[in-house]
């Protein structure tokens, strides 16, 4: 499961991820992080069986947690299956299928948005969280 963690000016200063790792024993994979002095956003991947405990600890520390269930959304009416997005995706989540159609492998998407800006027909959008 991928979780989007939002930190405010208080929580961003604390070593919360380390705390969660130690207390839950979950092997957390950081997929994307944008951390500044006043706020931060981190996307982590957590093993399914640890999601509940990880979320519980994060929330108790004051971190805003949202589950990323959907991948980047593709408007099939706009998409022409050119593939401009394929090589800019850092996780290789976008591929061609047997018919040469461009498809998104949901579980690999980390919501970075690189494909969104590279799509010439504006067919890709990040889902609202």
């Amino acid at each position: 499961m991928k979780l989007l963690l939002s930190f405010d000016s208080t929580t961003v200063k604390k070593p919360i991820i380390s705390k969660v790792t130690l207390e839950s024993g979950a092997l957390i994979n950081i997929l994307r992080a944008s951390v500044g002095a006043r706020k931060g956003e981190i996307i982590i991947e957590v093993p399914e069986e640890k999601v509940e405990i990880v979320e519980k600890i994060l929330k108790s520390e004051g971190v805003f947690v949202s589950e990323l269930k959907k991948a980047v959304e593709k408007n099939e009416e706009r998409c022409v299956h050119c593939g401009a997005c394929i090589s800019v995706c850092p996780t290789e989540a976008i591929k061609r299928d047997a018919e040469n159609k461009v498809v998104v492998e949901e579980k690999l998407c980390i919501h970075c948005g690189a494909c969104v800006t590279s799509c010439p027909t504006q067919a890709l959008n990040l889902p609202s969280i």
Partner: peptide, 23 residues
């Protein structure tokens, strides 16, 4: 094929034309 080699590194490619639509 989706990958070309540049300076010994594998580099991913993107088509800007649609093979699906052409077919």
């Amino acid at each position: 094929s989706g990958k070309v080699e540049i300076n010994g590194q594998e580099v991913r490619t993107s088509s800007l034309s649609s093979f699906y639509m052409a077919e």
